[in-house]
């Protein structure tokens, strides 16, 4: 009933559709990112995205046209940083807070304070018709690239040394993953906000790994968890007038807690049986 009510508003059904696609793409990418220990890249990129949004609003440019190239370039930069010996995590942290500072400064010069909240925590109203089209295109590109290169992404994640030795171009799949992550963050950021988007990458795979033990199952459960959390959060946000991004992340968190607990119980039962 509440669904039909939501669907009667064109802007809400648009947001629902875009969020659905982003949830699936981000959860699949997240599985590989988390297993490669690249979670920080997602987090760093969302901060860079915020900085780019601030600049775009200051210069009155279309947000997507500014954030897209900036975040994609940063994705490759962050990938190189994280491949450094020692992880380069301090460099990533510096880049994140610098981008955040630039974004805040740009927004305050622009003097439109309402934007700040939307940039940081997302806004459903920001999903325009052209945004929806671009999001659709980006999500389809991400999904199809992921599906076509699924086995290669898996192999280069599981054992890069073996993959390289048998002639797989690991570097190519690292770059692909960074590029797809950047795209998903850019389109997802406007609705969920730059502070919250990285949880969309990380929560689904962590939740799935609590209950699944094969790569395929982890991928499927992560995608299902992501869609479920999105729908639950979206409906809760409509029903209880909560900010959408925050209620989606809270839904992820609750599912994570439930799956962690049930994963523990399942393992306890297994150890009692065997």
């Amino acid at each position: 009933m509440i669904i039909t009510e939501i669907l009667s508003y064109p802007f809400l059904s648009r947001a629902l559709f875009v969020g659905f696609l982003i949830s699936i793409s981000s959860s699949l990418l997240g599985v590989s990112l988390v297993l490669r220990r690249y979670s920080m890249i997602g987090d760093g990129l969302s901060h860079v995205g915020f900085g780019a949004l601030g600049i775009a609003s200051l210069l009155s440019l279309s947000p997507l046209y500014v954030t897209l190239p900036v975040v994609v370039v940063s994705a490759f930069l962050l990938l190189r940083l994280s491949q450094r010996k020692g992880g380069g995590d301090s460099a990533i942290a510096l880049l994140s807070s610098s981008a955040l500072a630039i974004g805040v400064a740009a927004v305050s010069i622009g003097g439109v304070n309402t934007d700040l909240n939307a940039f940081l925590f997302g806004s459903i109203l920001s999903v325009s018709r052209s945004d929806a089209l671009i999001s659709l295109a980006v999500s389809l590109v991400t999904l199809s690239a992921y599906l076509v290169f699924y086995h290669q992404i898996y192999a280069t994640t599981f054992d890069p040394a073996f993959a390289k030795a048998t002639g797989l171009r690991c570097e190519r799949y690292n770059n692909l993953l960074a590029l797809l992550t950047a795209l998903v963050i850019v389109v997802g950021m406007r609705m969920l906000g730059s502070m919250l988007i990285s949880s969309l990458l990380i929560f689904p795979s962590l939740s799935a790994m609590k209950v699944a033990r094969t790569y395929f199952r982890v991928s499927v459960i992560a995608a299902a968890e992501s869609v479920a959390a999105f729908l639950a959060g979206f409906i809760a946000s409509y029903a209880l007038s909560l900010p959408t991004g925050a209620s989606i992340v809270i839904a992820h968190m609750l599912i994570f807690i439930i799956l962690s607990a049930s994963g523990l119980i399942i393992r306890r039962i297994h150890s009692v049986i065997s």
């Binding site: 297993l35 599981f158 040394a161 048998t166 790569y215």
Partner: peptide
């Protein structure tokens, strides 16, 4: 490769690993 090079907590089935050898 040396077994220590592989993440021990990586979720992956035996079949998934063996099949990846022919990529």
């Amino acid at each position: 490769p040396q077994r220590s090079a592989i993440q021990q907590d990586f979720p992956s089935s035996v079949t998934e690993i063996v099949l990846s050898g022919c990529l």
